[in-house]
């Protein structure tokens, strides 16, 4: 349990890092809004149209590809943890797993699924 204490401290500190300046600015700073100040800031360019729009469906393919490699990670994580005590056979078995999924990446690449249309 002891090592988790450090993660808990890290979580608390990382939650405070953004909230303390934001709340401090809100509590201490003077507030004199006008139309220019409260307009939406988007890299200095005037915002065109509504920001709540439907996005291109191509984002979805990226999400699906990410999902597959994320599941691959679940299998490879214990394998990588056990790496030092594995026999050569076990290392090769893990490499075969990676190569099989590399085929999926090659397929996506060659089919142009990673190209931005």
């Amino acid at each position: 349990m002891k090592e988790w204490t450090f993660i808990a401290i890290l979580l608390i500190v990382s939650a405070m890092l953004p909230t303390v300046p934001i709340m401090g600015g809100r509590l201490l700073g003077p507030r004199k809004p006008n139309e220019q100040k409260s307009s939406t800031y988007e890299c200095g360019v005037e915002t065109v149209g509504d920001t709540w729009v439907q996005f291109k469906v191509q984002y979805y393919i990226f999400a699906l590809v990410f999902l597959v490699f994320d599941i691959e990670l679940v299998f490879l994580y214990p394998w990588a943890v056990a790496y030092n005590r594995l026999p050569l056979f076990g290392v090769i078995a893990g490499v075969v797993f990676i190569i099989t999924l590399a085929e999926a990446l090659i397929y996506a690449w060659r089919k142009g699924a990673l190209e931005w249309l």
Binding site: V68, F75, T100, L101, Y107, A113
Partner: peptide, 21 residues
């Protein structure tokens, strides 16, 4: 099962790309 899982993930990815495109 470990190696079959990689084939399953391969099939899932190819299927997802075929359907989505």
């Amino acid at each position: 099962p470990f190696e079959v899982a990689s084939v399953l993930l391969l099939a899932a990815m190819i299927g997802a790309i075929v359907v989505a495109r």
